[in-house]
Each structure stands twice: as C-alpha cells, then as structure tokens.
Nucleic acid binder design. Structure first.
Length: 414
DNA sequence: TCTGGGGTCCTAGGACCC
DNA sequence: TCTGGGGTCCTAGGACCC
C-alpha cells in the first residue's frame, strides 16, 4: 500500500500560515514576473479564476472580489516544504519526495494498523506542526494513491481505497483525464474511442494501450488495476539537466543587458551544478522576443564544452560569448535562459592530454564563493559580468516577507 | 501594456558499424 | 527476378508531471 500526501493549494496556504487574516478569503499566487496565476485558495477557485491564467486577464475579476494577490516567494515555500517532509519522515519510514508539495509513503510496515486512522494522524500532525492543510490518499499502487488523494480533496481530506468494490466505484466516477499520467492529448485521444472514465481505461486491451500509449500508458493501466509498476524512489536519481531561465521585467534591447542576464543565469546554474556535485559537458543558451507579438524571433545555441566543468567563470564566458554571437540589434527580448546537460560526475571524467588547468585552485575558489553566499545570502559575492543594476530583473511586486529564512523578516508580535 | 519555470521518459528515424 | 541481418548511438519531438 502507498499513501500520497499532498498539501492543499500549497503556495496559497503557505501565505496564510503567517497571515491568518487571509483565512477564508480568496488568495492567489502569481508566477515569476507576476505573469500568471499558479496557485489559488478554494475561495479563489470558486470565483472561477483558472489555473495558469494570465494575471492581466483576470485582474478585473480579482479586484471586484477583493482577492488577495501575492508574488511567488520560493524562499518561503521551499522552507515550508522541508518542514512538511521532515514531519512525514518522523511519521513513516519510507518517503519519496515527489514535488515541492507532495510525497509518497510506502506503508508496507504499517498494514497492521487501521489505515484510515493512520491517515488522519498524518493529516492532523502536519497541520499541527507546520500550519499547512494536507490531503491523504491511500491505495495499492502509487497511481491509485494519487487517485484517492484526488477524492480526498473533494471530501474531508482522507480517502483510503480499502476494498476492490470501493476502488472500482471510485475508478468509475473519475474522469480519465484526472488519472496520473493521462494528460490533455491522451484524454482527447481516449475520448475518440469512447473511453471517459478511469475504469473504462483500466478495462482496455493491453495490446491496444501499448500500441497507442506505449509502455508508460500500459504501466498506468496496470497500476489502476492494482498491480504496482512504479516503485517508491527514496533516493532521487542524479539530475540530467539543470536549467535556469527567466522572463525579463521589461523587454531588453541592449546587448550589455542581455549579457548581464545570461551571466547571472550561468552563475546560478553553476551553483546548482556544484550543489549536485556534477560537471556539465553541454550548454544550451537561448533568448527570444515575445511569442504573442508580430515578428516573434529568437536564437538558441548549443555549445559542447571542451572540458566538463562547474567553474562559474568558464560557464559565464561561454554563455556570454553565445549571446554576443546570436544577439541581433533591434529585437526586444523578453526571455533568456540556459540549460546545462550531459552532466557527469568529476570522479569519472576523461582529462584532455594537455590540461593546463589548476583544478585544486579552481575548486577552492568555488568552495569559498559558495560558502560565503550560503552564509551571508545569495549574491553577497558575485561576478561583475552579471552587472549591478539589473534593471531587466523580474517583477515581484507583491511578495510576502521570507518569514522563516531571513532574520530581518521574522514575524513581530506586538 | 501585461501570458512561469523546471523537469522526466519514450519513440521514430537517420547515421553508422560489422 | 526482385538487394542480409543485426546492432548501437544520437537527436528531435511528443507526451507527461508539478
């Protein structure tokens, strides 16, 4: 048996923990650059504010109903997420952190318990220790636990798929697009063949599913039938890509600003890379103008690095060179970014024959840099290439304080 | 005027090898 | 009458997830 624990309206709920006056009020959280709606409290959902909708489109509705709007505050959400995960690890043994607001638990060692009571204990404890509401779904496979969690959200917060009959009943009630692994395209496809519910999908012929939806689709069907195909993964696999991209706060036309931005993204990506203990062999640099406007254009350049590296100055140099090569005067760029790929572990890399590089010195410099920035905050030390003004940086006009991660933002009780 | 960011897996098809 | 068989590696693109 697996449990899926999922925080309700996670970002919106995080905002509420430290501002209880937002309780019962509609709250939404915006994406980076204050562009789209990415989280909504139940009250906001009821008003008809859709997930992913551009802020400017729903703005009249939001103002009419006095909806509370927040820019996203990942410092806060990341820290609250850790608290939830730590709580779960105290309550059960095997936990897979699936996303910032969700975790799977393997309940193999807990089958002697009353699972429903146990689910309630998880829910109540997380609420008490972190202030966040969660839903708990339990089923024979991860896909069924997900499904149960879906149901839990609509009822009182806990659903356990104990018996075959109950599982079947819930499958028959669930639209197939709500199944984990079935997205918009497959939903459309399945509808053509008259498959509308999770139950109907689970009944489809294996060879037919395999042919049209490949092995992943077949796995999903098997899981719905109660046959586990997707194991719990406690240790995350090493990352295969590290990306860093942002929309600009306003269009960028100057080469120098574009270079600054990409230098900053390269710096941040290099930090992530070192955090994973990996080196990159490949870099993709891209930037483009607005796809919503006439004359949409952009550039992307893949660079095969001559030597695997996580050394910030190297990455900054290649990234800015790519920008200089592909930049075209007269374009108003709205977004830029880079992706590091072919990540390898330094221990098993091939050195080039004539390698003039003093690795020890470079490693020591990066360690010092990371240590200072960890202790004193991001960008305490930074490369001049990323500029000092950053007029292009993203908008975050309605951000709440970093209550749990900055001493200056601590909540004051007066 | 204003439309997010970061990931994974799978397959088909081409290039190439013996 | 009618062009072998069996592989690997790589990439682009499509699907999905949160």
């Amino acid at each position: 048996m697996f449990a899926l624990v999922d925080c309700n309206n996670f970002y919106a709920s995080c905002e509420r923990v430290f501002q209880p006056r937002l309780e019962k009020r509609p709250v939404v959280v915006l994406s980076n650059n204050d562009g789209c709606i990415i989280a909504r409290s139940n009250e906001a959902k009821k008003l008809g504010i859709g997930m992913g909708e551009p802020f400017f489109k729903v703005r009249p509705l939001i103002e009419r109903h006095g909806v509370v709007v927040r820019s996203s505050n990942y410092e806060l959400y990341g820290d609250m997420s850790q608290r939830v995960m730590q709580t779960l690890m105290r309550l059960t043994s095997d936990v897979e952190i699936y996303s910032i607001d969700e975790a799977f638990c393997d309940l193999t060692g807990f089958l002697h318990l009353d699972l429903e009571a146990y689910a309630w204990e998880i829910k109540d404890t997380v609420k008490r220790w972190t202030g966040l509401p969660v839903g708990v779904g339990i089923g024979k496979t991860k896909t069924l636990a997900k499904l149960a969690n879906n149901t839990a959200k609509k009822s009182d917060g806990v659903t356990v798929l104990q018996t075959e009959a109950m599982t079947k009943a819930i499958l028959a009630m669930t639209p197939v697009r709500d199944v984990w692994g079935i997205g918009r395209q497959y939903d459309k496809f399945l509808e053509k063949y008259g498959i509308r519910t999770a139950y109907e999908f689970a009944q489809a012929r294996d060879s037919w599913i395999r042919k049209h939806m490949h092995v992943t689709g077949l796995r999903t069907a098997q899981e719905l039938r109660g046959i586990p195909c997707i194991p719990l993964e406690e240790q995350p696999d090493p990352k295969k890509n590290i990306a860093m991209s942002r929309m600009f706060g306003r269009p960028v036309t100057e080469l120098r600003e574009l270079e600054e931005a990409i230098a900053m993204y390269a710096t941040r990506a290099a930090e992530k890379l070192r955090g994973e203990g990996l080196h990159a062999n490949n870099m993709l640099v891209f930037f483009y103008t607005s796809p919503f406007k006439e004359g949409f254009t952009g550039a992307s350049l893949a660079i095969s690095l001559p030597r695997a590296t996580s050394y910030t100055p190297d990455l900054v140099r290649y990234a800015t060179a790519a920008v200089r090569q592909e930049y075209r005067r007269g374009n108003a760029y709205i977004k830029a970014g880079l992706i590091l790929s072919e990540l390898t572990s330094p221990a098993r890399e091939q050195l080039t024959l004539f390698d003039p590089v003093n690795d020890e010195k470079r490693i020591a410099i990066m360690q010092a840099l990371d240590t200072v920035n960890r202790k004193w905050g991001r960008n305490t030390l930074f490369y001049a290439a990323s500029g000092t003004q950053n007029r292009w940086s993203m908008r975050r006009e309605r951000k709440s304080p970093s209550y749990t991660t900055r001493i200056s933002d601590l909540l004051k009780v007066v």
